[in-house]
Each structure stands twice: as structure tokens, then as C-alpha cells.
Amino acid sequence: MASYAARRRNSTFIMGLCLAATGIGVVWLFLILYSLLINGIPGLTLAVFTEMTPPPGEHGGGLLNAIFGSLLMTIIGVGIGAPIGILAGTYLAEYGRHSKITPVIRFINDILLSAPSIIIGLFVYGAVVVPMRSFSAVAGSIALAVIVIPVVVRTTEDMLLLVPNTLREAASALGLPRSFVIRRVAYRAARAGLITGVLLAVARVGGETAPLLFTVLSNQFWSANLLKPMANLPVTINNFINNPDANWKQLAWTGALLITAAVLSLNITARFFGASKDGR
């Protein structure tokens, strides 16, 4: 066996590599944020929030229609996906806790959770866009909902399983029916966790691009018609990057900054929300 000093040196060397890896790992985040801030802030004017996307070759303009479309589709997507996810998660953690189908559903849900989002886009194209004969905000919202469901199922189940059984037993002993035990007691106890799950789902779909590419397309103008293509931030950024127009490039950076800021702050909020309850 090597001398202790040599083993110590060896260990120190490898731990040094681990430290270096950490440094390099963390540095990416700051490099990306730095680029976003440097390139995005110069374009961050009030017009971004009050004006529509401009045609190429023009000055000015904003992202209002795209921001509106993204918000609307995210709200509808989460509005459809979150209740289904919470109900399904409830089944896994409560009614179906000992059912044979539960592990299967949990397994499938975990697969869906990591499934490539472009596949979801293909699915919604075939299931919604083709029958409706039109790209539409509805199709985009459904695609987002499909992505939301597994995220919410997972967190709901995890959070409900953390609720102590004694609480449920106490409530049942008072003669409360099962659904009341769940809704009035278990949900209340797990509320922070459930909200965290929904926030994480919002953060997840807020920047999704691939499933929107051939479900909503995009729109140069303001449109609030759910049955027609609608402008949205990710696809607008996608189109604007793919263009040499300087004004578009600026708007793309600013849009990217907005999306990243929104998604990261949602992530952080969700984490602190979850953490404050965990520590209790």
C-alpha cells in the first residue's frame, strides 16, 4: 500500500478536481446570465411591454402580443393540466395508495415527466391540429397542459405522502368522509407543496418552445382568438434569432432575458416556498 502521505496527496488532488468541477459548473450559469443581461438590458424599454412585434427592417416595436400570448397559453395550459395533475396525484397518494395499478401509473408518469417535449408537439399536432385543420392557441395550450400534468402529479403525490397518517386518522375518527379528509385536511397540510408543484410546472412550460412550433405557430400581430395562431414569446424569439435584422435580434435578447428572469424567479420562489414548509 502507498504511504499515507501519498494517499493524502492523491485524495487532495482528486478533491481539488471536484472543487474545480464545481467552479466550472457554477460558472456556466453566470456566463449565460451575463450574456442575457448585457445583450438584453439595452432593449428593455417600456415599448417592449406596450407595442406589437415589428416587421423586419423597422425600428422599435415591442413584444406585447408575444408576452400576452405566452401568458394566456401558460394560464390555460396550467389551468387544464394542474387540476388533472392534482386529482391524479391524489389518487396515487390516497385512494389508490395500495392499488396494483398505482405503481404502473407512477412509472408511466415518470416516463412522461422526462419525455422529449418535441414528441408532445407531434402528438398534439396529430391529435388536435390535424382534426381542427388549423394551428391554434388551443392546441398550444393543450400541448403545455400535457407537459404540466406529470410535473404536478409527481409533486402532488410526493407532498400528500408527506402528510402524517395520524392527521387523516384523526379526521376520519370525527366521522368526516374520505373526500373531506383529503380536501380539508390533507390538501391543507400539503398546501405549500402543492403550490410549489404548480409553480414549478409554470416555470417548466413558460419557456417551452418545441411543443409550440407546430401547434400554435406564431403571429406577427395581436390576436386573442384561441382558434387561430397566436404570438408567443418562445417561438417569436426562435424566429427573431433566425434573422439577421438587428432590431429583431435586440428584441430576441430582451425577450430571452424576460423569459429567463420569469422562469428563474419562479423556480426560486417555488424552492423557498417548499423549503420554508419543509423546515417546519
Partner: peptide, 25 residues
């Protein structure tokens, strides 16, 4: 609560889309 939210969302969207003038696509 969610179901009322959805219902409200759809009602809002429907009312918006009625008032909307058709673009050429």
C-alpha cells in the same frame, strides 16, 4: 377553485375572440 378558474378563463377568451376582427392569413 381550479374549475371556476378554467370556466372564467374560457368565458374571457370567448368574449375576446368575438370582438376580434379577422386578419388575412
Amino acid at each position: 377553485k381550479f374549475s371556476t378558474l378554467i370556466a372564467a378563463g374560457f368565458a374571457l377568451a370567448a368574449s375576446v375572440s368575438v370582438a376580434f376582427a379577422e386578419d388575412i392569413s
